[in-house]
Design a protein around this nucleic acid. Structure first.
Lengths: 343, 343
DNA sequence: ATAGAGAGCGCAATCGATTGCGCAATTCGG
DNA sequence: CCGAATTGCGCAATCGATTGCGCTCTCTAT
């Protein structure tokens, strides 16, 4: 409750001016060793800490970094958050967590807040349909787009090779002998949704497999959609022998649905999940899934943001970093019971 | 890059004084409707937002709320974080996320940072062994202890009825006919660890079941410990027929170990997990687990913190809120193969 | 008609850290 | 021994929002 001591208090204690205290603490040259030592020791003794608000006011920008995510309970984002938090901690920045639930209104509000706080910059997983003002605010503040890319703002983007992820999944199933493969992914309104579906399509085409559009479901990226999509797929007269999912939450929903419907995995249906988390290892016989280099990507993005805000020079063209996903082979995929291997 | 407009800019635009602008925006009485309207519209037009740093400086405290957690990837904590973030968003506070990894040094550093930021208050899951200065800083700032309770600081505490959680788990197993029940929990150095073990012990005693101390493992609360503890338990000459776990991470580790060792759950071993997450539903035949009212608890804690910081009156005695856990019955528990039901 | 009430708004100080400028003391070169 | 260079430190302004105080001007009541 009693306010923390300020430089003024230190100055009074040592009968020095505030400027001298400031310069001592800032390790400025024009201060004698002796004075500096006295100041430092007094600061420690009194329990002095800089007032970040005051510093932010002077410098015009705070040391706050924003993280704008749609869902912190998602293992993918919480892993990223951890990595980003680590980076911020190392460099003495505060990490402000903003959860949007993919709601453009909340997203905008959080962006306004960060602007109010004079945030140094932010890392954002853009919502599906950002508001106009959101775009304006993004352009006005240093930031990095994470995973998803909103093309309406030309900015640096750290993502996953989404097409490659789906190629891995589809290729794996094709190699096992599957020919009738369903796809459950997020809306093509998001960059990741587009790229993933594209990767899936191309892989099947390259393998000379026709795509049954009734088995391709792209919608919102939540658990409910995954569940509904799987339900629709299972209701098809001619069921697929395999499913790839292209989103963590919908992957869980789809898996839930299949299990609840009593579908045996993998004998009746091979299932490729998306993103990994510790518990997925023991879903049934283990979930074959796409593993993403989340931590590496998040750290790269954060480092980049710091470097960008540190150098006042505007970067020439937007940076674009894509990391490669991997495929974790576990027990949810197998050869189809009646393999239609024609080759 | 161009600085956001300030009250001064608005004042200049309308040829008013800064004070009038401030009062208009603050909805102060002594301002005519007309002036207020002009100011508000100009503010909107220019895209004005308060400078939180400046406001914090004047008021002596920022609108920042800290959240200090050991692990944001843990579903329990990320669920809490979501609830807390929602509360903060509603009231226009910024949520600063600080992850400690249960490291007292990091914990202290984060606490110092929050002090630097003149945080309004914070919600903390205290680490196992907080540093002396951590305790001092806690006493100096409004805060709420969440789930874990560090008795060295007398403060408000929002927790789970830990003893009751273990009673539910143990009672369930006993009712199924188990008599040889192992326990894997966190160190008794933490309040939760203590209370949980206590609840377990008492329930077995009340049922007249002797406790084999070789089957009681209490250690660090990470996945690795859970794994090791299960390994030790499985190595016992006389294996237990059931295990209860008392911590989310160690629960996963223990489950991993059992599955990896080829133990059939539940026929060879009944397993009660701790804390729930969407994917746990499909671990094997589903994981019977203790479900915690995380969101409710987190919201209650946050609300309380806000009420506390709003009223300048010091609360008389520390508040202590405990919510009751539940038991989610799924497929990982069953009657033991050779039930030694004596009754 | 005029004092008193109140409404509407401006002046200036404040919060704490930072920094350009300037003053004084010391040291150096010649 | 003197001007110049260097070192060590203080003054004062600045960042933007907030607020107590006080100055006008209008309106009302006596």
């Amino acid at each position: 409750m009693k306010r923390p001591p300020t430089m003024k208090d230190i100055a009074a204690e040592l009968e020095l001016s505030v400027s001298t205290v400031a310069r001592s603490l800032a390790d400025s040259p024009r201060i004698s060793r002796e004075t500096r030592a006295r100041v430092v020791s007094a600061a420690e003794r009194l329990g002095y800490v800089v007032d970040l608000a005051a510093r932010a006011m002077r410098s015009g920008t705070s040391s706050i970094v924003g993280l704008i995510v749609p869902d912190i309970r998602n293992d993918f984002y919480s892993t990223a958050a951890k990595a980003i938090a680590d980076c911020c901690q190392e460099r003495g920045h505060q990490l402000v967590l903003a959860v949007t639930d993919d709601d453009p209104k909340l997203e905008l509000e959080h962006l306004r807040n960060l602007r109010s706080a004079r945030a140094l910059g932010f890392i954002i997983i853009p919502s599906v349909t950002p508001a106009q003002e959101t775009l304006r605010l993004m352009r006005a503040t240093p930031h990095v787009q994470f995973v998803r890319n909103c093309a309406k703002v030309e900015s640096d983007w750290f993502g996953i090779e989404d097409g490659e992820a789906m190629r891995l999944a589809a290729r794996h199933l094709i190699d096992l002998g599957h020919r009738r493969i369903a796809y459950i992914g997020s809306t093509v309104a998001i960059s990741t949704g587009r790229d993933r579906l594209e990767g899936f399509r191309r892989t099947l085409q390259d393998a000379g497999i026709a795509i049954d559009d009734r088995l391709v479901k792209a919608g919102s990226c939540d658990t409910e959609f995954g569940f509904a999509a799987m339900q629709a797929i299972l209701a098809e007269p001619q069921r697929p022998t395999a499913v790839v999912t292209a989103g963590a939450r919908m992957s869980i929903g789809a898996y839930d649905c299949a299990r609840a419907a009593g579908v045996d995995i993998p004998s009746e249906l091979s299932f490729v999940g998306f993103s990994d988390s510790p518990t997925l290892r023991w879903c049934g016989n283990g979930l074959t899934t796409i593993a993403l280099p989340v931590r590496e990507l998040a750290m790269a993005a954060t480092d980049f943001l710091f470097r960008k805000t540190a150098s006042d020079q505007q970067s020439e063209r937007p940076c674009r970093v894509m990391l490669a996903p991997g495929l974790l082979l576990r027990g949810s995929t197998a050869a189809p019971r009646c393999a239609l291997v024609t080759a």
